[in-house]
Amino acid sequence: MSAPSVHVTGIGLALPGVTRAADLLRAAPGADAVSPAERIGRKGLRYKDRATQLALAAARDALREARLITEESETCALGASTAVVASSNLGNLDTVCRTAAEIAEQSVDGISPMGLPNASSNVVASSVAIRFALRGPNLMLCNGVTSGLDALRWGASLIASGRAARTVVIGVETRNEVTDALTGHAGPDVLDGAVAVVLERAVDARERGVVPLAELGAYTRGGSVAECVAALLPDDTGADVWFTPQGFDAELPVPATRGLARHDLSRNIGHASGALGVAQCAAAVGGFAGNDLGVALLTNGDDGSDAVAGLVLRAVRDAA
């Protein structure tokens, strides 16, 4: 079985201070927080945790760009064959930890029953499905620092296996006193935002007349940065830009990356954990649009994490 070609056909950002993918590489952390209610209206946001609200705002814009929903209707006409894969590590930590603390302080009678959906970590993925009527497989990746790229991988795999024709992939993280305490990262250098990407079988996108923004290439997980990069770029000429893992040493020599421009996107959007890979995808697409870049290598995780995930993304130049 050969995997079908998968295109990116929509991008949605719910990030502080950035509205266009092309601006991601010039962004800086610390801009005003996103207001999901201002972006997509208050309706349907009540009792949703912040990660879910941010994800809904990003997913709405990605689905619109991919022309899967319209300004008039949020119900996706192709929802039966559309999957959702969301990635977040920290999304519902605040609900979980605060509820446990409230029970200890007051007893179970003192907690709000409206917290129940948010105690389940997949609330982000299922809420996106409910809002836009997406009835395909619905996955929640909580896979540590590689989770964003892993989500793109599974989004493409669901298409390759025929379980879905297209996938909305969302990376979202949020910041609050619980995440501050548990991650040891606080302040504006921590992402409070979401990025969504629509992946679609290239033939379907073409039939719908949607302009492809990028094509997904190979994905791998390796035991180290060098191993991951070597598997994806076997020679020295494979890519134009390398989106490095968060905090990666910009000068550290890595075989097969000589002369490759490096970009640590966490400098633009802050510590992004499970959202980083999806944000890297959006940033690369932004770079492709400016015709600056043709091939991007995206990587998450470093030699200290459980693995390093890598994904190749290519511009689609001859599609029109």
């Binding site: 590590n89 997949n122 993925a125 896979n143 989770s147 459980d306 693995a307």
Partner: peptide, 27 residues
């Protein structure tokens, strides 16, 4: 407690050397 143990990949790598691990939180 360390947040890089919220998912199971860290422990799987330590115990079995697993590189391809995925934690799906699907209720």
């Amino acid at each position: 407690f360390s947040v890089d143990r919220l998912h199971f990949g860290t422990a799987l790598r330590e115990r079995f050397g697993t590189v391809q691990s995925y934690t799906f939180s699907n209720a």
